[in-house]
C-alpha cells in the first residue's frame, strides 16, 4: 500500500492564472473519488500525482520520497493511470501486445509479467481475446483493453480519469467490479468522476475540488449529506439521496440497497 502526501501544491501554466492554489491532503487506502466542475483543477491534480506536470510550488511525497526525483519509468511502476479516452492510449495490434507493453516498459520480470497480464485480462473480461486487434473492438471493449493494460503493471495506486464516460450499463458494471477488486487487494484507487450515483455506490472517500482548492474532503456519506456545500460546487446529490431528502427522511441514504437494508 502506498501513502501519498500532498504538501501545499500549487500549479500554473502562466503566473497570472493559477490552476491549483494550495492543495494539502494525504491519500490513503480508501477508494477516493475526486469530483467538481470542469476547470476546478481535478485533471491537473492527477497529472501532478503522475509526474506528467511539475508543481510550481509544494511537493508530492510517495512513501516519504519526493516524486520530483523519480524517473517516468520508476513512477510508472508505482502509480498507474487510465486515461479518459482509450484511443489516446492504444497503439499495438493485439490486445496482448497492448496489455504487456506497460509491464515491459517498467522492467517487470518475464514470469511475473505473464501472471499479471493474465490477471488483468481476467479482471477486464478479455480472456480469450488476446490476439484480437483492439481497433476491431467496440468502444466499451477498447476501454477494457486500456484498463487492463494499466492493471497489468500491478501498481499499488491506480488513477482513473472519468472511467464511466460514454459507458453503458454493462461497461459501468465491469468498471465497478474492477475498482472493488483493486480495493479488495489493498490497492489505492483514485478516480475523477461526474456520475454521483456511481461515486455513492463504489467509493468511500470523496474530495470536492472547486476553483483550484479543496472545498470538501470526507467520507462519501459526509460529503453527500451536505446539500448546500455541493450546490456551491455546482454538484448534486446522488439520486437516492435526493429522493430521501425530498421525502423528508432524516438519514442520508446513498443507494437503493442501503435503503432496503433498513427495512
Amino acid at each position: 500500500m502506498a501513502r501519498i502526501e500532498i504538501e501545499d501544491l500549487y500549479f500554473s501554466y502562466r503566473p497570472e492564472e493559477e490552476i491549483l492554489k494550495g492543495v494539502r491532503l494525504t491519500l490513503d487506502q480508501r477508494p477516493t473519488a475526486i469530483i467538481g466542475q470542469n476547470g476546478a483543477g481535478k485533471t491537473t491534480f492527477v497529472k501532478l500525482l503522475k509526474g506528467l506536470l511539475r508543481p510550481t510550488g509544494g511537493r508530492i511525497l510517495l512513501d516519504g520520497q519526493d516524486i520530483a526525483g523519480l524517473s517516468a519509468a520508476k513512477l510508472a511502476s508505482r502509480i498507474g493511470m487510465v486515461f479518459q479516452n482509450p484511443n489516446d492510449q492504444i497503439f499495438k495490434n493485439t490486445v496482448m501486445a497492448e496489455v504487456s507493453f506497460g509491464p515491459r516498459q517498467i522492467g517487470m520480470p518475464e514470469d511475473k509479467m505473464r501472471i499479471c497480464c493474465q490477471k488483468a485480462l481476467e479482471a477486464a473480461r478479455l480472456t480469450g481475446l488476446e490476439e484480437k486487434n483492439p481497433y476491431d473492438m467496440g468502444l466499451s471493449a477498447r476501454k477494457m483493453v486500456a484498463i487492463a493494460s494499466i492493471l497489468a503493471m500491478d501498481t499499488d495506486t491506480v488513477i482513473f480519469d472519468e472511467p464511466t464516460i460514454a459507458q453503458d450499463h454493462v461497461g459501468k458494471e465491469r468498471i465497478r467490479q474492477i475498482i472493488r477488486g483493486l480495493a479488495g487487494e489493498g490497492k489505492s484507487v483514485i478516480a475523477i468522476l461526474h456520475d454521483m450515483d456511481f461515486v455513492a455506490d463504489v467509493f468511500e472517500r470523496v474530495i470536492v475540488f472547486m476553483e483550484g482548492r479543496i472545498l470538501m474532503d470526507g467520507s462519501v456519506r459526509e460529503v453527500f449529506a451536505d446539500r448546500d456545500m455541493l450546490e456551491r460546487a455546482y454538484l448534486e446529490q446522488p439520486n437516492v439521496t435526493r429522493l430521501c431528502h425530498e421525502l423528508g427522511y432524516r438519514g442520508v441514504y446513498l443507494k437503493v440497497e442501503e435503503l432496503l437494508h433498513e427495512t
Binding site: K50, L52, A72, A73, I79, M81, D88, Q89, G102, Q105
Partner: peptide
C-alpha cells in the same frame, strides 16, 4: 495527451 498516456506507462 497521447504523449502523457505513454509516459505514464513508463516510456521516457
Amino acid at each position: 495527451i497521447i504523449m502523457d498516456a505513454q509516459r505514464s506507462r513508463g516510456m521516457e
